[in-house]
Amino acid sequence: MGGALSRFRSGGDTGFRLLTWCFAASVVALFTLLTVVLWNESLPALRTFGARFLVSTEWNPVRERFGAGIAIMGTLVTTGIAMLVAVPLSLGIAIFLSELAPHRLRTPIGAAVELLAAVPSIVYGMWGLFVVAPLMADTVQPWLGAHLGFLPFFRGPAMGVGMLTAGLILALMIVPYIASVSRDVFLMTPRELKEAGYGLGCTTWEIIRDIVIPHGRKGVMGAVFLGMGRALGETMAVTFVIGNAYHLSWSLFAPGNSIASILANEFTEADGDVYLSSLIGLSLVLFLITFLILGAGQLWLRSLSGGKEA
């Protein structure tokens, strides 16, 4: 202790260093505590169902048989759709704002995108239910069914609510995060690199494709994982438009359920130890999924930079 702190000359520095150590340690402690509590509370369910809990698609409160299969599928599918839609959209917005937009428009559009992040998620859910769902039911889903109905993803009645609508609402929710972080990353591309490119006769598109994006690769991946983390856990927006059904279907028009949505709907009402424990088991599963995906993201980022930085 004396050795590590001996280079600080004043007591204030020592105190400050200790304080920040405590803050950092408290985050780790909180994480550990959360894991421990979730694990303990879900033990009854895990003991009853075993590893089958993760894959079983049964969710039967009457017979007290629960499985996380439907919830996991729903969470992954809606997040997948959200990422498929949001990433290109956000990158396009980021590139536009950093490279292509007239300077006068950059601030207002940038502010508008960031304001979208401030909209409460329940407002997104209600907007999705009252505005987007009828639009999907009357226009988008029939069109998709007519033109792409040969694929199993676009079959079934057009109800407006379902996995597709939930995925789209989620996409709109995470666009501000990915777009604003990516824009900041692109703005940090060194001018010398771009000017060298222009000096060699590159077009704007070639500058963006070959200089700006590769340079900002790590930051953009970080932004994408940030958005993905939000999409995985999003509750209120999804629960309004996902349809809350307990069966799996290939079709994206079908209603489904996500982990967060089941928790929001059933937690207050769950009586019975196995029921409650299964719900907490679901939250443990979500915790683990988020942890795994973000961890994998970190490892990938590290490999992109050759292992030199985190």
Partner: peptide
């Protein structure tokens, strides 16, 4: 019979209000 059951088909609405809302729209 139960307060929550494993519904074979259908959409779920939250509360009587939610079901009424779906009925009006769908």
């Amino acid at each position: 019979n139960g307060k929550a059951v494993s519904w074979p088909v259908g959409l779920g609405g939250k509360g009587n209000e939610g079901v009424a809302g779906f009925l009006k729209k769908v």
